[in-house]
Design a protein around this nucleic acid. Sequence first.
DNA 1: TGCCAGGCCCTCTTTAGGGCCTT
Length: 204
Amino acid sequence: MNNNANSLIVLDFETSGLSPDNGDRAIEIGAVKIENGKITEKFQSLMNPGFRINNFIENYTGITNHMLQSAPPCHEVMNDFADFIGDDNLLAHNASFDKKFLDAEFSHIAQCYSGEFACSLLVSRRINTNAPNHQLGTLVNFMNIASEGNFHRALFDAEMTAKLWLVMLDNIQQQINQSSVPFELIQKIAKTPKKNVSDLLEKW
DNA sequence: TGCCAGGCCCTCTTTAGGGCCTT
């Protein structure tokens, strides 16, 4: 594990559906690298899954079958993405979803990654206890984060997740009165029952 | 024919059910 929570890859997949076990594939990857509290690199690409996506996904994402026809194939994009993420830790909003697609796409090309996932959704449920809900768009509005772009596109969602993450890290830093938040603490927050999180931060 | 995602989390729980969140 890279224990530096201030340097990590924030990623978001758009996909043909909810489950790679049912044959769904990634159709777009967007990611940003956060280093020392700032977005320093970006990665974005559509990818052709080799079949037509349905109307719901076209409407939900704005990604059309016409756009995917000329996109590079998944294996090509995922190999480039493996180089992008290196051995950094990873972050996504509802990470279990993006992790299962990353695992599935990497399994197709015999790639692997060494970083560990953090989940902004799980942390938000424990830190932003007054939020009306924990959907990415709701949290961005709730925390007054500037947002000009289209939700449900991979790079925009990754950027918004990164900005949300930095606000939450700042919140945690203030609570523990330290200048950085160890990745180990992030993982502990995500696994701690909500009612015990304030105790965890006080004693850190 | 009938089913059709899955992990997390809460509670009127744990011998379970249902909502949230992602596409």
